[in-house]
Design a protein around this nucleic acid. Structure first.
Lengths: 197, 197, 197, 197
DNA sequence: CAGTAACCGAGACGGTACGTCGAGTCTTACA
DNA sequence: TGTAAGACTCGACGTACCGTCTCGGTTACTG
């Protein structure tokens, strides 16, 4: 049995060009005004080549934007980068995110992606998976390590704490509020008292 | 000196019809596929009458949906309805919201509105004001009363607690997750420990 | 018995302003792009004042343009201005018309009026009456005087000659051809031989 | 070197459908009320397909109506159909035209086309070319043959005679007057005396 | 090593909606 | 009652995209 098919094979070059053009358009104009005609032109590609591989605008956004292209350099907590203090790590992660959100193009991209979730269940699912679950898992793992080191109570509702953190980000993306030091300070105090050991 | 102008005055009837039709279209099709042609037809109104008073789809959504039409019957905490226990009240408010969100048309409407925030700063500001500030103020007032009754510490970051609550809602709207009893329970535990007296 | 009615009486000033504004718009933009909104604004008049007195765009053009405002200073032949030679008079009249037609605004006005005839039977009838019949009657009268002086045969088809002259004008209006001296010369020769005595 | 371009080629079927629908609309409603929306719908074509190939309503009329679709079966004089007598041929041609003009839809079409000339120089030029030049050339050729057979004087202003004939038609189109036998008789007498040998 | 199947850029197609303009009607405050 | 102002419904404008289809042409597996 063979996995290869006859005929010309898919152009990876075209695929990349499409995804990049999509991201640029999305950052510049938002989801609603994203035009596949423009994407095709910018990518130097025929429109059919887009529709051959993605079923709709939403699907393109789902793959192109959410699979890694979305948040370059936004490091979730990981064992390698842990400090001694879980609250320092949480604050630092929030601060990184706040900085990323302060860049207009990143903020626009996040808002556009968030908007795309409303149009399509598939996109919503991937948004939840990629943007959210990845982050949630990393944060929960950090809390688990903090439980081990005694900084967080074993019976604390850490899942909820993580959900509150992610929700906070979602909320700041939508409302365009900055993530200030006061916000970070409040969050850390709330969590330290709420789940701390 | 007179405040009246010559000419026919704005038709309140048309205004209401437009806002209602907008809400219905929004719930049924979402923001992206909302057509002002259809809204005009459904409202029995000329398209120009829409454009005369609202500068864009986003502005229409901002006014029509956020000014009261959005969440009929979702009572924020108020002194009249307070129970003895602030946590019971918070849990009850979350449960109400969860029930509202479980109705497909309400969920669709909230998602659509949330998506609209991405397209327009004005909408984002009104969304923040109406959905969020109103709710936030009510919740903060409830916590203030809870401080008076000794259920919440005076120095606790109640503002952040409120923000976390609102963010949680925003997040569940976007990701289509239900608000379960487990979620509610976790939130209450987190807050009770985080800000409780 | 009184002929006056209660209430404010019709403003002749407004009527004149409307007719003048109509003529200007018509010369500048043509019949198709004539806008009553613009006419009302230019005349400093409410739109309803136009519709109170004229039933439609075409009716306004019919009255405003065809009743005297159309061809200022284009003298048809008359006993007072007759020369001794009917052919000199015909040539002179054609030459005057050619000069008027050479002015872009006059040509535009004539073309616009001609176009208006296509839209409305009423306008067509008035065009025939005003522009055409007046001219035709004057020309036929001139020929009658020429018959008396022996320059034109009594049994000649003068009505047809006149119709040919008017048709020639109509044709030059539509096709934008200039009326040259060669044309005038040809016409005079044709008629002199065709109807001359 | 290749003359073909990539991409789907223009649909001749769509082109024909558009031109036919235009002609029908024009005959039914006239130039002013001609709606490209309706033409597109009647032709089963997207509106953009019209605008892709024609720059304006006037250009569409210019091509669609004047290129052959206008006067099916209105035979201009030609050597094959000549009788012995040029005046019989002229009278016969006028009579044919009069009959065509008596049909309401033909008359409406001619009026609409005539109106279209007022809006656009291009249309005016094509109108002059098609309706007029074709006819003029045929008539002038007939007169030339009549000169050869001695029925028309060699030094007669035949060009003017032809112009008068065409102008007469133009004038009857605009004023909606029928072309009667009396008119035909007058014209023939005028010309016979005016240019006859 | 010719066929042929699947890809590619280009671009026209039938549609839907946009946001604007204008026609003709209706309503208000004032003269 | 007439008038300027101006909002109203309706319908067409010309443009922008959507998602599909059709060209001529390019790989790359297959018989």
């Amino acid at each position: 049995m063979s996995t290869t098919r006859p005929g010309r094979s898919r152009s990876e070059e075209a695929r990349q060009a499409i995804l990049l053009a999509t991201r640029d358009e999305l950052a510049e104009r938002g989801y609603d005004k994203l035009s596949l005609d423009r994407v095709a032109a910018a990518a130097g590609v025929g429109k059919q080549t887009i529709y051959r591989w993605w079923s709709s605008k939403a699907a393109l956004v789902a793959e192109g934007v959410l699979e890694g292209h979305l948040m370059p350099g936004l490091a979730a907590p990981s064992p390698e980068t842990d400090s001694d203090d879980v609250w320092v790590d949480v604050a630092s992660w929030l601060r990184d995110f706040g900085r990323a959100l302060a860049a207009p193009s990143t903020a626009a991209l996040l808002r556009a992606t968030s908007a795309a979730t409303a149009e399509d269940d598939e996109v919503a699912a991937r948004y939840d998976e990629q943007l959210t679950t990845v982050t949630r898992v990393a944060l929960e793992a950090r809390f688990t390590r903090a439980v081990a080191s005694g900084q967080v109570r074993a019976d604390a509702p850490t899942a909820t704490a993580v959900e509150a953190l992610v929700g906070l980000l979602s909320y700041h993306i939508v409302t365009r509020r900055d993530i200030t030091e006061a916000t970070i300070d409040g969050v850390v105090r709330l969590l330290r008292d709420g789940v701390g050991g």
